[in-house]
């Protein structure tokens, strides 16, 4: 039997289209995520790729119930057993939140500029483990060490750090509760290539140490190819292709995947970029 930490079935997210004005009313709805099904194996990494507006971020935010899905189920294997995240009330979700954490794209926007690093990283502990408050400081120092930051960073503000260091702070905050599922929403997109390589290596190390499962949202296909075992390709809210990364990259079945792959610039100056023409493809 396969050990799937998350099983998502017929998952849809819709946004209301409102008529503006004094008597605002709903005039329709926009389907941002359309009937998506997939599963993630424990300890593996799943990549979600697609262009902006394809619904990849909306999908992961709805799985975490940051926004409410319209229909479908997302069955999560928590420490206490399988639960459908879509059926739970907000209150019942609270204890589950510490098992599912998120790392955000923009290391400048996702850290409160008025909080010190110690407060940023310990905030999840204050919320979820207030009874252990005596040990918080030690746990924070330990976590910062694991992500490669020294203890003297504790009392500094985010502005004092470079992009790569800030992303490490974001990772420390996500991992301090010892989650089992970590969602990385474009976690390395804002970073330089060499800093990106450091952060990707760190994520791989932490995955092995802490037995983490990653859902890795990215538009950089090379990063997904390097980092993930399985991948979903999303286009206009639907999954157009899914499977092992190697298969998607070597023998793509859907035209949209072919378009994405053809748009990746090669490091070899003699291999010229020749993206497929969007209009000649059957994308729907």
């Amino acid at each position: 039997m396969t050990d799937n930490i998350l099983e998502v079935n017929n998952f849809s997210v819709k946004f209301p289209l409102m008529k503006r004005g004094l008597l605002s009313r709903q005039v329709g709805e926009f389907t941002a995520v359309n009937n998506v099904s997939f599963s993630v194996q424990r300890g593996s990494s799943l990549g979600i790729v697609g262009e902006s507006g394809s619904g990849k971020t909306t999908l992961v935010r709805a799985i975490l119930r940051a926004i409410d899905p319209a229909s479908g189920s997302a069955v999560f294997q928590s420490h206490t057993g399988a639960v459908d995240l879509c059926q739970l009330s907000n209150k019942a979700l609270i204890p589950l939140r510490m098992q599912m954490q998120m790392i955000f794209q923009d290391p400048f926007a996702s850290l409160n500029p008025r909080m010190k690093v110690a407060d940023i990283v310990s905030e999840p502990l204050v919320i979820h483990r207030p009874e252990q408050h005596r040990e918080h400081r030690q746990m924070v120092i330990h976590m910062l060490e694991r992500v490669g930051l020294e203890a003297d960073t504790l009392h500094r503000f985010p502005h004092a750090f470079s992009g790569g260091q800030r992303q490490r702070i974001g990772i420390a905050r996500a991992l301090i509760l010892n989650p089992s599922l970590v969602i990385c929403d474009e976690a390395v997109s804002a970073l330089d290539v060499s800093v990106q390589a450091q952060v990707l290596n760190l994520l791989v190390d932490l995955q092995q140490e802490m037995n983490l499962t990653y859902i890795f949202v990215a538009h950089d296909l090379n990063v997904v190819h390097h980092f993930c075992e399985q991948a979903l390709v999303m286009y206009h809210g639907s999954v157009v292709e899914s499977g092992p990364v190697e298969q998607i990259f070597t023998s793509p079945r859907h035209d949209y995947t072919r378009l994405l792959l053809s748009a990746i610039p090669s490091l070899d100056p003699d291999i010229k970029l020749s993206p497929l023409d969007r209009n000649s493809l059957s994308l729907e």
Partner: peptide
């Protein structure tokens, strides 16, 4: 340090 189209074991950051 560039993640390539070939899957490699580990990136070598600067």
């Amino acid at each position: 340090a560039v993640p390539g189209m070939k899957q490699q074991d580990r990136l070598r950051p600067v």
